[in-house]
Structures are given as structure tokens and as C-alpha cells.
Amino acid sequence: MRENLRVAAYAVCVRDGQLLLARSPAPDGTPEWVLPGGGMEHGEDPHDTVVRELFEETGYTVEVTGLLGVDSVRRSFPRRGLRRPVDHHGVRLLYEARVTGGDLRPETGGSTDLAAWHPLTEVPALTRIPLVDTALTLWRERPPSGRAADARRG
């Protein structure tokens, strides 16, 4: 089985009771809401990753105001075609960030197609990835360990 490690950085941006999210297609094509952020480039600092990714996906410049925590997920993906099965390990750094400039716009030619603010009270009704819930748990509870033990995993 092939091993794959992906380190990524994501932002929790809350303003006036609303959470900034980006929309991305799930593997089956269904649109789902995700945190703005993404994979680190080789040699890139995670802080710089979240600033870059947030700008690419939303059009906003941000100030990182804190590290909320780290989430880790491990999944096995079956073999496709001639490729071996994959043991995927994702390490996700979750930052809090504040919008400092820019204009909200969708990403062009990237992994997301829309960015929008959502009232925090409406987030549970959205089709979203579990990392959104993990991030909100970290944002609300601020556990000293930086780990949201009770959040949905994945």
C-alpha cells in the first residue's frame, strides 16, 4: 500500500456572527462547504499557506490571530486502475484569522467555486465536511491541547 502524507492549513474567519466558507465538489460531485485553506507547498510555512490559500479562495487578505489546533485524519483509499491502494494521512493546522482587506470573490481555476459568509446558527444545516465542525469546536472551546476530542472526525 502506498503511503501519502498531506499537511494543510485552514482558517476560521468569524465576523458579525458569520463564518467564511468556500464551496468545493465532493468526490461524487456534490457541492459541500469547506474551510478556506489547503495544502502546503514544499518549503512553505503553514502560516503563509493559510494566508495564501485564503486569498486564492476568497479574495480576502487576512491577519492570522492565533493557532486553534491541529487535526489529524487517516484514511485508506482503494486501488484505482493500475494504482496501488493509498494509506492517506492528513495533518490539518487550524488557524483563526481576521479579514483585513480585499473583496469577496470566487476562486478562478482552483478547487473551490464559491466563497460566502454563513450565519453560525445555519452552519449545522449546510452540507459540509466534518473539518468545519472540528474547527468550530476548537474556535469555541479553545482546548489547551489544541485537539477537539469530541468533534466529528474526517
Rank of each mutant, 00 (worst) to 15 (best):
L5K: 05
L5Y: 03
A11Y: 01
C13Y: 04
D16C: 09
L20V: 08
A22V: 15
P27T: 14
G29T: 07
L35D: 07
G37M: 10
G39Q: 14
H42A: 15
G43H: 05
D45V: 11
D48K: 12
T49W: 01
E53M: 07
L54V: 13
G59N: 04
Y60V: 04
V62S: 05
V62P: 04
V64Y: 02
V64F: 02
G66I: 01
L68P: 00
L68R: 00
D71Y: 01
D71M: 06
S76Y: 13
G81W: 03
P85G: 02
D87L: 10
E96K: 00
A97W: 02
T100G: 09
G101Q: 10
G102A: 05
D103A: 15
D103P: 14
L104A: 10
G110T: 11
D113F: 14
A115S: 13
P119A: 06
P119Q: 05
T121G: 14
P124S: 05
A125K: 14
L126T: 11
R128F: 09
V132G: 04
V132P: 04
V132M: 05
T134S: 09
L136W: 06
L136M: 05
T137C: 12
W139N: 02
R140W: 03
R140T: 10
R142Q: 07
R142W: 02
P143Y: 00
R147A: 13
A149N: 11
D150Y: 12
